[in-house]
Each structure stands twice: as structure tokens, then as C-alpha cells.
Amino acid sequence: MGKDIELVVYGAEVLCPSCVNLPSSKEQYEWLQAAIGRKFGEDVVTYKYIDIFNPPEDDQHKKFAERVVEEDMFYPVVLIDEEIVGEGNPKLKTVYKALQERGLEPQL
């Protein structure tokens, strides 16, 4: 398959006000990478982390980062191929399901 699937995590260094007891967005991003790598293998997903308060200049990521802030979404917000699959405290089961719907198979 090889890197056709993109997982983007929108988050911030400061914790979401409603997510005080959860790991930071960056920690959850790294945790998702490790968990997905163990289940599906390395190099099958492309990962990006976007700081919602300092997004890159490209329109797509900048607009969604603004949306996260304006709509007071719980972050991190996890997208797979532009579909929101997790918000605040992403669930691995939901992320895995979205990846399998896109053709990834768990490794044995």
C-alpha cells in the first residue's frame, strides 16, 4: 500500500481546557504513530502534526486549524484522509477501524 493514507493531528502545546488529565497533543500524536506502526507496520501511513496556534501557510491546514480554534473543538483532532476520526482523547479502536476501511490490514 505504502503511504497513500495521511493521518493529521491538529493540536497545541497547551492542553485543551476540557482535557486537563490527558496527555498533550504531541504525546498523543507520538503514541498514535507507535500504536499504528505496531499494528499495521511502519511506513504505511504518512503522519503530520499541525500546531493550531501556529499552522503552516498552506490553505488546507491553516483553515482547519482555524476551525478547531473557532469551533472550540477538543484537541488533538485526528483526521485520516480529511475525515475526523478522533477529538480530545482519540480512541485506537476508532482510528484502527478508519485505517482498515481504507484497505490497511493488521500484521500478524
Rank of each mutant, 00 (worst) to 15 (best):
L22T: 07
E13L: 15
K97T: 12
E105L: 10
L108P: 12
E70C: 13
E101G: 05
G86D: 06
F40D: 04
K93Q: 13
Q100E: 14
E101A: 08
M1V: 11
D43A: 09
E87L: 04
Y47H: 09
E57C: 13
S18E: 15
P55A: 04
P56S: 09
K48Q: 11
P23F: 02
M1E: 15
S25W: 01
E57K: 13
M1I: 12
L92Q: 07
H61C: 11
K39S: 06
V45H: 00
F40A: 04
E66C: 14
R38I: 11
A12E: 06
A65W: 03
S25Y: 03
E6I: 05
E70D: 15
A98V: 04
N54W: 07
G88E: 03
G86M: 05
V14R: 14
R38A: 11
M1Q: 15
E87A: 11
E87F: 05
L79V: 12
E66W: 13
I50R: 05
K63T: 12
G41P: 06
A34N: 09
F53Q: 09
Y75V: 03
D59H: 10
L92W: 07
D72M: 15
V9I: 03
Q60G: 14
A98I: 07
L92K: 08
E66L: 14
I5P: 07
G37I: 08
V77P: 01
S18T: 14
V69D: 05
Y29F: 12
A35S: 09
E82F: 15
D51F: 04
G2V: 14
L32H: 01
H61N: 15
G86V: 01
A34E: 15
C19F: 08
Q100Y: 07
K62V: 10
S18D: 15
P23G: 06
G37L: 10
Y75F: 08
A12S: 13
V95P: 00
L32F: 04
L104W: 00
P76Q: 05
Y75C: 02
I80P: 06
Y75E: 01
N54P: 13
F53S: 07
A65C: 06
A65R: 01
Q107C: 12
E66I: 10
I52L: 05
P55M: 06
Y75A: 03
E27Y: 06
I52N: 00
E13F: 11
V68R: 01
L79Y: 03
E57Y: 12
E66F: 14
F40H: 05
A35D: 14
I5D: 00
L15T: 08
P90C: 04
P106Q: 08
E87I: 02
L15D: 12
A65N: 00
G41V: 01
E42H: 12
V77R: 04
E70Y: 14
L108K: 09
